[in-house]
Each structure stands twice: as structure tokens, then as C-alpha cells.
Design a protein around this nucleic acid. Structure first.
Length: 293
DNA sequence: GATTAACCTACGCC
DNA sequence: AGGCGTAGGTTAA
């Protein structure tokens, strides 16, 4: 087992691991105590994910980020948790706006994540009309039922299934696992990727709005889910997913941004939130409104 | 292009 | 207790 540490004070803007991993951006990490998304903060708890067959455990203790892995995971940890983002500069550059200021102030140290694209795509297909805790349990169930077993130091975990593994599932099986009407969406999207027809990563090379269009070809993916994949997996920091919380924020704080269609409203809010890092602003506002603190 | 019902179901709240 | 409304939307008319 390989291990590593970084002192949080070395990171511009710090790191709040709990808010980063339990703010509804990622469903591909699990908390060792099983209390992820229960609303109770993690104090020194390990979080675990599997990337490219390697288990990665991470936690913060006494101002230090620690990790353990089957491999030298520092580059992966830096990428997954976006440790090289200059968070202080991003916050400073954000537009002067009462709601935004409040959100940034309340959740210091929350970073965006960069998760693998396929797992993110399926997670957010599952997210339609779902509470965060249930999305997390659905994704965990898919990993348990269809993903490879991997272990670290005697503890066994499951990777998120590959497209081929998930494409081998049937709609009926996924309905039995509680996915409801999302079951056929997940199977058909997995089949599209497994067959080599197309892959969410293909969107990387496209301009932002074209990339969103590209992702909307997957079954069960509309503008909102596409924006989530762009922001949380493909590093399109300007993506602003418009969910029910952001729609409320638009009604109450940015009525001039309501332009009718998703595309136009999203474009207006993106400008309102400063363009380049508008997705950071979205994530803070979303988390601020959803948690109420 | 813009509207509108239908879709699964666990969980919190009355 | 047990029923009711809701939850980070998308699809098909």
C-alpha cells in the first residue's frame, strides 16, 4: 500500500473534504462508516473510490489530507479533488453578488470534483427526481451488483461497472434494484457506450454548448444532466446545471436571467456568475440553498 | 419551439 | 401507524 499527505495550508483556499464529496457532485465515493449523505459531517472518516482498478482512500485529520492506495495516487488525488485549482483566486474573481458571497463564505474549502465520465453519466441519469441519499445508494448498488471487486489492505470494494458490465444488465434487473423508470435509460446508455458507438469523453474536444448537445444523445440525458457531466467529469467549469434549486434562485435573485428556454437562461446565468468559473458558483449556490446553511 | 402528462419508489412529514 | 406528497428530470405525445 502506498500513502501520501498534503498539508491543507499548502492548498490555495483550503479543502473541506466533507463538503466537496457530500455536496451532490459525486456519487462515486463512499464513506467508510456508511453514513455518506446522511447529513452528519465526517470527522476524520475515510472516503473511498475506485479509479482505473485502483482503490483510493482519503481523509483529513488535523489539517492534513492523507491518502492510501494500491498505487502512487498523488496525481490521481490531485485530479479527482482538483487540488491544483487556485480556489482563493476563483472566489476572489467571482462577481460581487449577495447570494454568491454568502454561499462562498458559508462553504469555504469546497472544491469541484473530477470524476470518471461514464460513472458520472449514469449517476446523473439516476438522479432524476431523486434525493441525494437515494442516488448514492442506487450507484452503490450498481457497483456491488455489476462492478469488479478490488481490495486494499484486506478491505474489499467495488469499482463502478464498465459500460460492458452495465450493458449486460436487463431493464427488469435494474427495476428490481430500485431504479424505477430510469432502468431502461441506464441499460440503453450503457449499450451505446459499450458498443463503441459513442462515449461521453468524446465531448471533451467540443465547444461547451456543442458538448452539451453531444451528451444529450444518451438516453435519459437532457440539458440538466448533460451540464452535470460536463461540470463534474469533463472539466467544463462554465457549465451551470439548472436544477430546481437554481431555478428557485433565478426566480428570487436573478429574474432577469429567466429567458424561457434552458439554453438561453443557462447562458444568462453563466454570464451573471462570471463566465469562466460559473460552474463553481453554481455548485456553491446549489449546496447553500439545498442544505440551508 | 413550447407545453403537458406520465414515469418508479423510498423516505419524511403529517 | 398508514396515507400522502415529494425528490437535483426526461421522454413522448
Amino acid at each position: 500500500m502506498e500513502t501520501g499527505t498534503i498539508r491543507l495550508e499548502e492548498l490555495s483556499g483550503g479543502l473541506d473534504l466533507y463538503r466537496t464529496l457530500e455536496s451532490g457532485q459525486t456519487y462515486l465515493w463512499r464513506r467508510a462508516d456508511g453514513e455518506m449523505y446522511s447529513g452528519t459531517p465526517a470527522l476524520g472518516e475515510w472516503y473511498v473510490t475506485v479509479v482505473d482498478g485502483d482503490v483510493i482512500r482519503a481523509r483529513t485529520v488535523d489539517g492534513v489530507l492523507e491518502w492510501q492506495s494500491t498505487t502512487d495516487a498523488e496525481p490521481t488525488v490531485r485530479r479527482l479533488l482538483r487540488l491544483d485549482d487556485d480556489l482563493e483566486a476563483i472566489v476572489d474573481a467571482a462577481p460581487d453578488d449577495p447570494l454568491l458571497d454568502e454561499a462562498y463564505e458559508a462553504h469555504r474549502g469546497m472544491r469541484l470534483v473530477t470524476d470518471p465520465a461514464f460513472g458520472t453519466l449514469v449517476s446523473f441519469i439516476c438522479s432524476a427526481q431523486m434525493r441525494v441519499s437515494r442516488i448514492h445508494s442506487m450507484v452503490s448498488t450498481l457497483a456491488r451488483e455489476y462492478g469488479d471487486e478490488v481490495s486494499l489492505n484486506g478491505d474489499t470494494y467495488h469499482a463502478f461497472p464498465t459500460p460492458a458490465q452495465l450493458a449486460s444488465a436487463t431493464e427488469a434487473e435494474l427495476r428490481d434494484l430500485g431504479l424505477g423508470y430510469r432502468a431502461p435509460y441506464v441499460v440503453r446508455t450503457a449499450e451505446m457506450v459499450a458498443s463503441g458507438e459513442t462515449h461521453p469523453d468524446d465531448a471533451r474536444t467540443l465547444e461547451y454548448e456543442a458538448a452539451r448537445e453531444h451528451l444529450c444523445q444518451f438516453v435519459g440525458v437532457g440539458d440538466k444532466v448533460a451540464d452535470c457531466v460536463l461540470l463534474f467529469a469533463l472539466e467544463f467549469d462554465e457549465a451551470v446545471p439548472l436544477d430546481t434549486w437554481l431555478k428557485t434562485a433565478i426566480e428570487e435573485h436573478y429574474p432577469h436571467c429567466d429567458c424561457g428556454s434552458y439554453t438561453e437562461t443557462s447562458r444568462a446565468l453563466r454570464e451573471e456568475f462570471g463566465g469562466e468559473y460559473a460552474g463553481y458558483a453554481q455548485t456553491y449556490v446549489f449546496h447553500h440553498l439545498r442544505t440551508g446553511d
